[in-house]
Amino acid sequence: MTSSLILSVTTFVYGLAAALYLSAWIFHKKQLFRWATWIVAAGITGNAAGFVLRWLESYQMGIGRIPLSNLYESLVFFALMIALIYYVIESKYGHQTIGAFALPLATLSMAYASLSSSINDRIQPLLPALKSNWLTIHVVTCFIGYAAFAIAFGLGLMYLLKRDDNDHDQAFWSRLPDRHFIDELTHQMVLFGFLFLSAGIISGAVWANSAWGRYWGWDPKETWSLITWFVYATLLHVRFMRGWRGKRIAVFAMIGFAAVLITYFGVNYLPGLHSYGAG
C-alpha cells in the first residue's frame, strides 16, 4: 500500500527534522534551524498525505472508513498532531529550540507505528460498535489532547534542563527560551490538552450512551482517562489556587504525560471495550 510507504518515509523525515533541531541548538547554527523548519513542513505534508491516502485506499478496498480505528492509525494521527501543534507554536513564538524536544516525540510515534513488528498496518473493516460518526469526533479530540500533553511533557523536560536564566556562562542552555516563557507555554499546552481531553471523554460518553444506553462502563481505558484528567485538573488547580510555578509544574506535566501513556498503551494489556486500539 502506498500510504504505508509514504508514512514510513515520513518517519525518517521527522527523524531528520529532530536531528536538525538538535544539531542547530547544540552547534548554534541558524541555517540548520531554517532547514529544520522546512523539513518539519515536509514531514507534516507527508504525514497528512499518508493519512488521506489511507482513507482513500480503504474506499478502494470497499471498506470506506476514516483511518482512526487501530493502534497503527492512532500513532500516525498522534504524530501528525504533535508536529502540527509544534509548527503552530514555532510560527507564533519563534523559539525553534522547542523543536529539539517536540520532534523526537513525533518521530518516536511514527517509528513505533512503522517499525514495530507487533503493529498491524493493514486496513481492516470496522467492528459494529465503531460504526458511528462519533468515532471521528472521539478519536480526534482525544489525540489533539494527547499531542498537547506530549508537547507539555517536552517543555517540562526543557524547563528542568534549563539552568538559571542569569547563568550566561552556559551559552548552550541559554539558547533555550527563558524559564518564564517555558513555564507559561507549558501551562498553555496543558490548558489546551485538558480542554480536548475533556471533549474526548465527553464525546466518548455521549457515543457510549447512543450505542449502548450508558455513559460509562469503567473499562480500563475509561478509568485511566479519568485518572489522567484528574492529574491535569490537579495541575491546573494548584497552579491557579496555590500559585505553583516552574519546576513543580514541569514535573507535574511530565507525570501527567506518564498517565497519558498508560491510558494510551498501558491499558492495552488489560481486557476491555477499547481493545481494538491495541493492535
Partner: peptide
C-alpha cells in the same frame, strides 16, 4: 439525557471561557 448533555456542553464551554 438532555440534562446530562446540557451539563456536558456547559462544562466544555466553561472550560473554554475559563482557559482562553
Amino acid at each position: 439525557v438532555p440534562l446530562v448533555y446540557t451539563g456536558f456542553s456547559l462544562l466544555l464551554i466553561g472550560c473554554w471561557i475559563a482557559f482562553f
